[in-house]
């Protein structure tokens, strides 16, 4: 029963689209405020100084692309795999910062200095999203997708 539900194509569609929306939402503020986001990346004290700005420019764009791909149903598996990779990285970074007692703005959804700081609830939220991403990567759902509308529905038999 549960197995059936998890594998259901509508559930798969909802997971995919929800994850896509979250990633797009998370990317927008960072893309519009690259300088602020770079400072937050620097605060985590995990990357060498030369890589911080490049990382701060590429990561939000990758989030945005993954979000769009998941919603459109194009390149679902690679996008979901990137989502898994990014979430594992976020969980690692937040855990490290928490274990060192570093109390910084997480830079998750907003670059504002009044945004939330790191905490355990943030880790739980990331882990929840990681489950969604693993689901999306595993089932590679294409129900209602651009690739389905435009792509070949069934392989054309060779003659």
């Amino acid at each position: 029963m549960i197995k059936k539900l998890i594998g259901n194509k509508i559930v798969g569609l909802l997971v995919r689209v929800a994850l896509g929306l979250i990633f797009i939402y998370a990317s927008l503020d960072k893309i519009s405020h690259p300088g602020e986001f770079a400072k937050i990346v620097n605060n985590y004290q995990l990357l060498p100084a030369v890589l911080i700005n490049i990382f701060a420019l590429i990561l939000p764009m990758l989030e945005l692309l993954c979000g769009i791909a998941l919603i459109l149903g194009v390149l679902v598996r690679p996008a979901a795999a990137w989502a898994v990779a990014m979430l594992v990285m976020f969980i690692g970074a937040v855990s490290l910062a928490l274990s060192q007692g570093i109390n910084i703005n997480c830079g998750c959804f907003s670059t504002s200095t009044h945004a939330r700081t790191l905490g355990l609830n943030l880790l739980l939220q990331d882990i929840g999203m990681l489950l969604l991403a693993v689901h999306a990567a595993y089932f590679d759902n294409r129900y209602v997708s651009v690739s389905r509308v435009f792509g070949p529905r069934t392989p054309v038999p060779a003659r």
């Binding site: 420019l57 990561l59 764009m61 390149l75």
Partner: peptide, 17 residues
């Protein structure tokens, strides 16, 4: 596919910047 996505993200990110 994943490599292409990150290349595209880099191109868009740097161009946008």
């Amino acid at each position: 596919s994943m490599a292409l996505m990150v290349v595209l993200a880099a191109a868009l990110g740097l161009a946008g910047n």
